[in-house]
Simulated assay, not measured.
Amino acid sequence: MGAQPIEPYGPTDQLRSGAEIRRALPPPMRSQFDQALAGAVLAERAHILALWSGIVIEAAHPSGDDQVRCFQDGTLEAHPLEWCQQQEGSTW
């Protein structure tokens, strides 16, 4: 019987390495990622990888841009926290 975990530790949908993030980026963004990572000292590397991991998610699902446009033109359906709490019957 081995000591290997059945599943990897941590979220499996999170990109962890520079190579994984680079592959997932749209080709036009890869040179920007390369520049950001190349100029980073070791202490900054984790922050840059986390930042670009989020950029990959946003590039894959750009609906956030649509929400910003709707907000800017006044058509975004938004409610205050109290309204959401009332709808769910909670008081976070």
Score class of each variant (00 low, 15 high):
Trp83His: 10
Gln35Thr: 14
Glu20Trp: 01
Pro26Ser: 09
Ser31Ile: 11
Ile55Cys: 06
Phe33Cys: 04
His47Ser: 14
Leu42Asp: 15
Pro26His: 10
Met29Cys: 10
Gly39Ser: 13
Arg69Phe: 02
Pro5Ser: 06
Leu76Gln: 08
Ala78Met: 10
Val68Phe: 00
Gln32Gly: 15
Ile21Leu: 02
Met29Trp: 06
Gly18Gln: 05
Gly39Met: 08
Met29Ser: 14
Gln67Ser: 13
Ser53Leu: 01
Glu58Leu: 14
Ile55Lys: 04
Val41Gln: 14
Thr75Ile: 02
Leu76Ile: 02
Val41Lys: 12
Asp13Asn: 09
Ile48Leu: 15
Glu20Asn: 05
Ala60Tyr: 01
Ser53Phe: 01
Gly89Ile: 01
Ala40Tyr: 01
Gln87Trp: 03
Ile57Asp: 15
Arg30Val: 08
Pro27Cys: 03
Cys70Gly: 11
Glu7Tyr: 12
Glu58Asn: 11
Glu88Gln: 12
Gly2Ser: 15
Asp13Arg: 09
Ala40Arg: 07
Gly64Glu: 06
Gln86Tyr: 07
Leu37Lys: 02
His61Val: 10
Ala38Asp: 12
Arg69Tyr: 00
Leu37Ile: 13
Gly89Asp: 04
Phe71Cys: 08
Leu49Thr: 00
Glu82Asp: 14
Gln32Phe: 13
Ala38Ser: 14
Pro8Gly: 07
Ala60Glu: 12
Leu51Gly: 10
Arg30Ile: 07
Arg45Trp: 04
Gly54Glu: 11
Ile57Gln: 15
Gly10Asp: 01
Ala78Gly: 08
Leu37Gly: 05
Gly74Lys: 06
Ala78Lys: 08
Glu77Phe: 11
Ala78Ile: 12
Ile21Ser: 01
Leu37Gln: 04
Arg30Met: 07
Ala24Ile: 01
Gly39Glu: 06
Trp52Leu: 00
Met29Asp: 13
Ser31Arg: 14
Ile6Arg: 12
Phe71Leu: 15
His61Ala: 13
Glu77Asn: 08
Asp65Arg: 13
Asp13Gln: 09
Pro11His: 04
Gly89Leu: 03
Val41Ile: 10
Ser63Ile: 08
Ala60Ile: 03
Ile48Glu: 06
Glu88Gly: 06
Gly54Pro: 01
Leu25Tyr: 06
Cys84Ala: 11
Asp13Leu: 08
Arg23Gly: 06
Pro62Phe: 00
Gln87Cys: 01
Gln4Thr: 15
Trp83Cys: 03
Gly54Tyr: 02
Gly64Ile: 02
Gly39Lys: 10
Gln4Pro: 07
Trp92Phe: 09
Arg69Glu: 05
Gly89His: 05
Trp92Asn: 05
Gln87Leu: 06
Trp52Met: 00
Ala60Ser: 14
Trp92Tyr: 10
Ala78Trp: 11
Gly89Cys: 04
Glu20Tyr: 02
Thr12Gly: 09
Asp66His: 07
Asp13Cys: 05
Asp73Trp: 00
Pro28Val: 06
Ser53Glu: 14
Phe71Pro: 03
Trp92Met: 09
Met29Asn: 11
Leu51Asn: 12
Ala78Phe: 10
His47Cys: 12
Pro80Asp: 13
Pro5Ala: 06
Asp66Thr: 09
Gly10Ser: 04
Pro62Asp: 00
